[in-house]
């Protein structure tokens, strides 16, 4: 799975941390950090995290193939 948090919208409620502590964590009192590409074992927890975010700041995407671009 892939994860993106809009950290402008995020207000550090930490609901994602409760739901998926292996994916989201706080650095200091209010600064959210996270793994953008969590492993498949965390998928359920990550989905719960996205659902729980009070300001809906979390976007999820499927674990897609890395893009192999044509070299220019």
């Amino acid at each position: 799975m892939r994860v993106l948090v809009d950290l402008n919208r995020c207000q550090s409620y930490g609901q994602c941390v409760f739901a998926a502590p292996e994916v989201f964590w706080f650095r200091g009192a209010e600064s959210l950090e996270y793994d953008h590409v969590p492993d498949a074992e965390s998928d359920r927890a990550t989905e719960r995290a996205a659902r729980a975010c009070p300001v809906q700041a979390i976007t999820l995407g499927p674990a897609v193939e890395a893009i192999v671009g044509e070299a220019g």
Binding site: Q11, Y13, G14, Q15, F18, A19, R48, R51, A52, C53, P54, V55, Q56
Partner: peptide, 21 residues
Amino acid sequence: GNAHLAFGGGVHYCLGAALAR
């Protein structure tokens, strides 16, 4: 995008929300 208001918001946002969930 279910940004409901059930747990309030701002500085008083429910402290037990994760537990309640």
